[in-house]
Nucleic acid binder design. Structure first.
Length: 470
RNA sequence: GGCGACGUGGCCAAGUGGUUAAGGCGGGGGUCUGCAAAACCCCUAUCAGCGGUUCGAAUCCGCUCGUCGCCUCCA
C-alpha cells in the first residue's frame, strides 16, 4: 500500500510503526457552522481510516477542537456569550453534521481549553532547550534555531521572507518566529503560566494534544492542504525540537481544497455552502460520491449540478442492491475481480475515483446477472461492503427522505423515513395497482402522473410497485 | 516576487511511455414494459498550444497561453 507523503514529496510504501496505527487529523475551530470544504476533508480522512481498518489495521484516530482562538473570542464577544459556550454550540453542530455524513467518530476529541497544562509543559521544554523565548508577555518559537524549518512546505526562511506580506513584529527576533503563548488581554480567556497569564498560540495545541494522546511519533498526520504552512510546519518544528525525536509524523497527508466558482471556499472569504444546506437536497452518499470521484489531493470545484449527478449515481448503486426478482439458478456472479480492482486502486494512494469506477462496474455486473437470474447475493454483499469502506450506506430509504425535509428536522427524520406523506403515497399506489389489474390504465396513469408531478417516481416490477423521490 | 498544483469527450473525472484513453452525469438509438420508470445493449474524446526526446507520449523535457493554491486566519 502506497501513499503520498507531503514531507518527502513522493509516494511511499506505508509501514506503520506498530499496532495500532496512530493517526491525528486537525479538526475545526468551532466558531461557525461547518461548510462542505470541511465535509470534503473529514470524508477523505474518514475513508482513509476505514480503508486502513479494511486492510486489517487497528487505527487510533484523534481529532482536536481548537476552542481557544481569536475568531472564537471575537464572535463570542459579539454574541455576548462566553467563549466556551460558543465553542460548545458549534462543536455540537459539527457532530450533527459529521453524523449526518456518516463520518465515524474519532476515539478522542481533545480541546485546547482542557489541555493547557500539557501545552505549558511543552513550551517550557522548548524554552529550556533554547527554542523558545519570552518577550513582552508572549513566548515565541525561534525559527533560526531549527535547521529543518521549512522541510514540510519545502521552502526556506530566506524564500519566505522575500514574501511581501511578512510583517516584522517589533518584539520578535526574527519575522518568521511564531507565537507559542500569547500574553493575556483584558476580557479574554486566560490561564496562569510561568510567563504570566495568557493563552496558547495557534499551533502549539496540536503538538501537545497529539503527543499526549498518541505519543511523540505519529504514523499519519492529516489535514487540509491549507494547513501545510504555517500550521503543520510549525507543529513539526515545535514537536521535534521539544522531543529531540524525528519525524514527529511519518506520513503527512493533505487533502486538496474545495472551491466554489474560481475561489477556494473558506470562512474568511465568506463564499461557503454549509453541510446542512447541501444535505437538504442531496444525500450523504451523494456528497461522498462527489468527493470521492476525484483524487483527494487535487482541488475540487463545488456546483449543484455535480451534486445532482452524484445523487443519480448513488441511486444507481442503490438500485443494484435490490433483491433478485426471480429465483436464482445455480450459476453465481463472482465479484472477486471488481473487488480486487477496488483494492488495487485504494492501495495506490487512495485512488477513490478508480475504486468508485469498480463499484459502478460491479453494479452493472449485478444488473446483468439479475436479468440472467444468476445468484446475486454474494456480489451484492461485496458491493455493500466496499461502498461501506467509502462510508456510503446505499440505504434504499434515503431517496424517500430527500425533498421537503427541513434542516432542523433532519436528525429525527433521517432515522425513520419520509414523514407524513408516506402512508398516503402507499395508499395511492395500492389504488393504482387495483386499477391496473382491472386494466383501467387511464386512471392508473393519472395517479402516476400526479405523483410524478409532486416529485414521487413509481417503478413497477414483477414484485410490485416501489417509489422514490425525484 | 518566491514556492507549488492543474489544463483529458457536452459537464464532472481517472489514467503519468506501448493492447480498444476508466467511471459517473447528460445526449442519441434500441430491448423490456399496457404505457412509463428502473435495468440492459449500441453510439457519443486523441488528451490547452507549439517545439523537442523516443521505435513509440495524454503520460518525459522546454517554451507559450490559461486557471488555482500557499507564502496572513483557514479543512
Amino acid at each position: 500500500m502506497k501513499l503520498w507523503n507531503t514531507l518527502s514529496g513522493q509516494k511511499e510504501e506505508f509501514r506503520p510503526q506498530g499496532d495500532p496505527v496512530l493517526m491525528y487529523v486537525c479538526g475545526v475551530t468551532p466558531y461557525d457552522e461547518s461548510h462542505i470544504g470541511h465535509a470534503m476533508s473529514y470524508i477523505v480522512f474518514d475513508v482513509i481510516r476505514r480503508y486502513l481498518e479494511f486492510k486489517g489495521y487497528n487505527v487510533r484516530y484523534v481529532q482536536n477542537f481548537t476552542d481557544i482562538d481569536d475568531k472564537l473570542i471575537n464572535r463570542a464577544r459579539q454574541a455576548g456569550i462566553p467563549v466556551l459556550d460558543l465553542a460548545d454550540r458549534f462543536i455540537g453542530r459539527y457532530f450533527d453534521d459529521m453524523d449526518a455524513l456518516n463520518v465515524r467518530r474519532a476515539e478522542v476529541y481533545p480541546r485546547v481549553s482542557q489541555e493547557i497544562p500539557g501545552i505549558i509543559d511543552l513550551i517550557s521544554k522548548l524554552e529550556q532547550r533554547g527554542y523558545a523565548y519570552p518577550t513582552g508577555g508572549d513566548v515565541y518559537f525561534r525559527v533560526q534555531r531549527d535547521e529543518d524549518y521549512g522541510k514540510l512546505s519545502h521552502r526556506t526562511l530566506e524564500g519566505m521572507q522575500a514574501g511581501a506580506r511578512v510583517e516584522v513584529g517589533e518584539l520578535k527576533e526574527d519575522p518568521m518566529d511564531f507565537v507559542l503563548w500569547k500574553g493575556a488581554k483584558p476580557g479574554e480567556p486566560q490561564w496562569e503560566s510561568p510567563w504570566g497569564p495568557g493563552r496558547p498560540g495557534w499551533h502549539i495545541e496540536c503538538s501537545a494534544m497529539a503527543m499526549r494522546y498518541l505519543g511523540p511519533k505519529l504514523d499519519i498526520h492529516g489535514g487540509g492542504h491549507d494547513l501545510i504552512f504555517p500550521h503543520h510546519e510549525n507543529e513539526i518544528a515545535q514537536s521535534e525540537c521539544a522531543t529531540g525525536e524525528a519525524p514527529f509524523a511519518r506520513y503527512w497527508l493533505h487533502n486538496g481544497l474545495l472551491r466554489l466558482g474560481e475561489e477556494k471556499m473558506s470562512k474568511s472569504l465568506g463564499n461557503l455552502v454549509t453541510i446542512d444546506q447541501v444535505l437538504t437536497s442531496h444525500s450523504a452518499d451523494a456528497l461522498r460520491l462527489f468527493v470521492l470521484s476525484s483524487h483527494y489531493r487535487g482541488p475540487l470545484t463545488y456546483n449543484d449540478e455535480a451534486l445532482d449527478a452524484a445523487d443519480k449515481g448513488a441511486d444507481r448503486l442503490r438500485e443494484a442492491l435490490r433483491p433478485a426478482d426471480r429465483p436464482a439458478g445455480v450459476e453465481r456472479l463472482d465479484p472477486a475481480s471488481q473487488r480486487q480492482r477496488f483494492i488495487d486502486a485504494m492501495d495506490d494512494d487512495f485512488n477513490s475515483a478508480q475504486a468508485v469506477a469498480a463499484l459502478f462496474d460491479l453494479a452493472r455486473d449485478i444488473n446483468r446477472a439479475r436479468e440472467r437470474a444468476l445468484y446475486l447475493t454474494a456480489a451484492q454483499d461485496t458491493l455493500r461492503e466496499l461502498a461501506g469502506v467509502l462510508g456510503m450506506t446505499l440505504d434504499p430509504q434515503v431517496r424517500r427522505q430527500l425533498g421537503g425535509v427541513q434542516p432542523a428536522a433532519r436528525g429525527s427524520l433521517s432515522r425513520n423515513g419520509a414523514g407524513d406523506a408516506e402512508p398516503f403515497i402507499d395508499l395511492l399506489i395500492e389504488l393504482r395497482s387495483n386499477l391496473r389489474v382491472k386494466k383501467e390504465f387511464a386512471l392508473a396513469d393519472a395517479i402516476r402522473v400526479g405523483l410524478t408531478e409532486r416529485g414521487v417516481t413509481l417503478e413497477d416490477s414483477a414484485a410490485g410497485t416501489t417509489w422514490k423521490r425525484k
